[in-house]
Nucleic acid binder design. Structure first.
Length: 259
DNA sequence: ATGGCCAATTTTATTGGA
């Protein structure tokens, strides 16, 4: 029996977040750290902060936008970026890594902009493909899907849900798409351990005192297939990192498993 | 209460984020 800790963190630029990510690695010592919105081309990614601490790092980044990375302890057995038959930007939003005993999937789902914007249709397609991918990967065993899914799945996952019906992160269609992931066999690991209200992972910079007043969204998720979810022992939002100097607008989300 | 923020690039404005 060993402890396996995963942390997912939308960094909103890896270069701007080096001190916070270093603190996260040193204090939490995750086995796997998945990052989104790294906003940095691969040759400029600060691999050294991970490698100096004994991690291997897989990156798929581009200039200014998007970008995902995974820091892992030990060797990946196999990896991929994007969907088998996907779209141009998908590889900068989806990283799959075969670890010992599971497929790890790190994703940054498109935000969608507005309900009538083409990006929202792309978001729904992305989530639909993600559910399809999960079903395929389940053929190999357990699947751990983490990342910024840009969906608050229930009314408990956002402040003032009543006026968010047409929001691209809360619209009924996008919540239905999230349900499609659960329908593919994934379990909301965070909710298994934290059933209460006011559990958020994103607090908008623009809302004055958002963190102190806890006005936010739970859009960063840790989902796992049943066998893995049954071995989870804890999950939490690490909001201290949102309160640090020069923070991301997201907080890291942690999941702990006994494997 | 979605902007008043923040980060990046096309930088002393614009764009995207959620």
């Amino acid at each position: 029996m060993s402890i396996f800790k995963v942390v997912t963190f939308n960094v909103n630029s890896i270069k701007a977040r080096v001190p916070i990510v270093e603190a996260l690695l040193d204090r939490e010592g995750p086995d796997v750290l998945c990052l989104q919105e790294t906003k940095t081309v691969d040759r400029e990614f600060p691999r050294e902060i991970f490698e100096a601490r004994g991690y291997r790092v897989l990156v798929r980044g581009m200039k200014a936008y998007n970008g995902v990375a995974a820091a892992i302890r030990g060797e990946e057995l196999e990896s991929f970026a994007g969907f088998p038959s996907g779209e141009e930007m998908d590889p900068y939003r989806l990283l799959g890594v075969r670890l010992d005993g599971m497929w790890l999937v790190n994703c940054y789902v498109p935000q969608g902009k507005e309900i009538d914007h083409p990006d929202y249709a792309y978001k729904l397609r992305f989530l639909s493909r993600l559910a399809e991918l999960v079903r395929e990967l389940e053929g190999d065993g357990e699947v751990l899907l983490v990342g910024d899914l840009n969906v608050a799945p229930t009314e408990a996952d956002v402040t003032n849900p009543k006026n968010k019906a047409d929001h691209v992160c809360f619209h009924r269609d996008v919540r239905e798409a999230f349900e499609g992931l659960l329908g593919a066999g994934l379990v909301d690991v965070f909710r298994r351990h934290r059933p209460g209200e006011g559990e958020f992972s994103f607090w908008d910079y623009r809302v004055k005192g958002a963190l102190e007043r806890n006005i936010g969204w739970r859009i960063d998720h840790i989902l796992a297939t049943r066998g893995l979810a049954d071995r989870s022992v804890d999950s939490a939002v690490l909001r201290d990192y949102r309160a640090m100097e020069r923070p991301s607008d997201h907080g890291p989300v942690m999941g702990v498993f006994e494997l």
